[in-house]
Amino acid sequence: MAKNESTQPEIARPYANGVVWRRLSPLATVLVLILVWHWITDWQLVSRILIPPPAQVLQSLAKALADGTLAKHAGTTLGEMMLGLPLGVSIGLAIGYAIAKAPLLEYILSPIIVAFQSTPIVAYAPLLIIIFGTGPSSKVVTTAVIVFFPTLVNTIVGIRGVSPRLRDLMRSLNASRWQIFRKLELPSALPVILAGLKTSATLAVIGAVVGEFVGSGSGLGVLVISARSQYDTPLVYVTVLTMTAIALSLYSLVALVEWRVLVWQRRST
């Protein structure tokens, strides 16, 4: 039952074995996918109109990079995300915390929140465009709206999951409200909140692009429509893959933060 009390705590190294292979395996998946893609187009299994060969997509990428098209549109989308994501996340954190602490608020707010969440954003994005204008601000709003919910739910779950006995401990130490938040609630809820943030990070791209689809002057959503309307399928692929890359990078960034902050969880398993 009790561990041997004389052993020194050892630094856990979960990746010590086969670390190289594990790190490389996603890369291998991507390579295999590209190969399959190449063969499908090479053997004309599917019309090139629907799936252009990888080489053609690569050419299109080089061109879009060289003439600045990709940078311009990706920059717009990233800018909208970088405002919308923190906005939606901070509102989600604040309301989530309030609801977790005051269950009455949940009764009052949950119909509105559930209604917002269960309505597809694609359906009401045009309304947001009309209200907030056709500039970037409406896309900041669509992004904020879409990232709000996972943050909210995970904040509520995280704060409600704080051990009541640790709360007793903090109270018996005469800790202030701020100290209880900073030293107990926040670190205790952090793993769940960060998990929500990972979801939000991937949704942020969707939020911005949905807003751009409805009406915008630039952004990856616009580029995809304009490439599609010009039957430039390789450019469509380049744009979609760029969105994927942005979502993946953002996800990895949060995962990295998680890895740095939650040392104790790695050591605890």
């Binding site: 045009p126 465009i129 009309i130 056709t134 409805v214 009406g215 915008s216 002057g217 616009v222």
Partner: peptide
């Protein structure tokens, strides 16, 4: 001044 307004 061209403004992209969607179908609105």
């Amino acid at each position: 001044e061209v403004k992209e307004i969607g179908f609105n």
